[in-house]
Write a protein that binds this DNA or RNA. Structure first.
Lengths: 112, 112
DNA sequence: CCTATATTCAACACATCAGTTGATCAACGG
DNA sequence: CCGTTGATCAACTGATGTGTTGAATATAGG
């Protein structure tokens, strides 16, 4: 699946805020409404509501309808796409470092 | 190692920009200077220089000194700390979903 | 020394973001 | 029907981010 650059923008930027990360952490333990999610924070519910809109736009959460409530659910698939992106480059770099180490080891051996 | 919230802020926010992600991608293939990194982009070298400062402040890259050049190196350890953070919550959510599915399956069995 | 090259600093414009307050909308429950 | 509750919208403020241009710094090399 082709990873959309703008989707990565939205998702990584969404995770770049401590409030939004805390919301993700909370939702990893189960769905919750805006009021429930806002309760531990000292900022207004409107502010939490907008953080949730950012998370929803990034795909990190989805929302359903239950009467007047709008429960939020974490979407692990988008988290997985982020780790995939990161790991691609991390593994490439680590493999390169191992090759460099191997070369240095070879040089050291030859110097004996 | 205790994950610092502000460090996560800096690292995730750093990855929330397509230029900085492209710089990370380039550096995963080996170290490079500001001029080399700026070459593929249409923005000024000053802008690239500041993107690199953001990446350095996040710990995602480190910089050395080689005469008048300041080569940049990718730091896989910080990438790893990000995947760890993400995976913690992703795995928790996926495990919860599996438990829910198991319960639904049990209910379905009992209805037979 | 003098000049070219690599990089950064400073000041500015412009856009976006995170928060507030106050109003609005929609659904529930008596 | 009406008041309450959950949630969002709108308008505004202050802070931050991204880009520009032009000047400054530092090192390399003749």
């Amino acid at each position: 699946m082709p990873v959309d650059e703008e989707a990565l923008d939205r998702a990584f930027t969404a995770l770049g805020d401590p409030v939004r990360r805390a919301l993700i952490a909370r939702l990893s333990r189960g769905e919750a409404t805006v009021n429930e999610l806002a309760e531990p924070f000292e900022i207004t519910k409107q502010a939490i509501s907008r953080h949730l809109q950012v998370l929803e736009a990034s795909g990190l959460i989805t929302r359903s309808r239950d009467g007047q409530r709008r429960p939020c659910h974490l979407n692990p698939a988008v988290l997985e796409s982020l780790t995939s992106w990161i790991d691609g480059y991390r593994l490439a770099a680590e493999a390169r470092f191992r090759r460099i180490d191997a070369v240095l080891e070879t040089v050291k051996e030859q110097e004996k």
